[in-house]
Design a binder for these strands. Sequence first.
DNA 1: TTTCGTGCAAAAGCTTTGCATTAGC
DNA 2: GCTAATGCAAAGCTTTTGCACGAAA
Lengths: 149, 149
Amino acid sequence: MSNNLHDKVEQRFQSVVERLSAKGRRITPQRLAILRMLISSKDHPSAEQIHLGILKEFPTTSLATVYKTITMLKEEGEVIELEFSEASNRYDGMKPEPHPHVVCSKCGVIVDPETVNLQEFMHRIASETGFVLHGHRLDFFGLCPKCRE
Amino acid sequence: MSNNLHDKVEQRFQSVVERLSAKGRRITPQRLAILRMLISSKDHPSAEQIHLGILKEFPTTSLATVYKTITMLKEEGEVIELEFSEASNRYDGMKPEPHPHVVCSKCGVIVDPETVNLQEFMHRIASETGFVLHGHRLDFFGLCPKCRE
DNA sequence: TTTCGTGCAAAAGCTTTGCATTAGC
DNA sequence: GCTAATGCAAAGCTTTTGCACGAAA
């Protein structure tokens, strides 16, 4: 059912709020709204997109608060950041562990392909370079079906 | 021999200069110096590091020229850019096609592991998402041997 | 009541741009 | 001689910070 996704979102939302609360983070309306957007958006929004979305509900929310909240959520491991230097960074609060992304070079849409197993690579590269690895970023760039006309 | 690497650098340097020239790009002392740094650095320098390196030889070179030259070299496909939003972007002129990088989260050193084959992933993901893929970025993050104390 | 979060404005940092000057070709 | 590249300063953008005010616990 289509309720499946909604239930999943709601479940994650509740559990994140509990963890934040347990760690002494204050629960504010702005934080709840930002968190909800981050968890329910499957399109990897930017800080500004989140801000615009929040303004409908809380018209006085500042962009600074959005950034501060995202920073806090990154610290808590509830959100991951996809860095872009030419464009705004994008955020994933649905699946906050490193995973592959497919990015359209034209419209900027970001989708999650089915998980690709990188464990083998991680191990091989760790032993080869002497690094202790604790994360990765794998992005594929191309044109999405819509942008191919 | 240690001349092996030097020869390779020199060979690539010459061939890039030829291609630029053939495409009507003007060959200036600044461009040659920037290109040489980009090709001979195996440590993936930032624009500012390149600028500092160039200043010894050409003390009046501006940072703007460095950026403009890098942009031109990206257009020509002779350099790839590794984007970081928190820090400066880093550049690879030695191997200007997408490939994995291993990034130290502490000191920022970037090394190239032996090539990992991603073709299988690319094909699987292309057919799964409907994207036409033309590049990728794969970064592993961790601590380099030195930064582990 | 105490402390943390919010919101405004200003700052910071990297990169780009406008424009006059210089130099390739 | 034409045109593109350089170099300086200023602008542009995203993100961060300082600080006074307000709200959570």
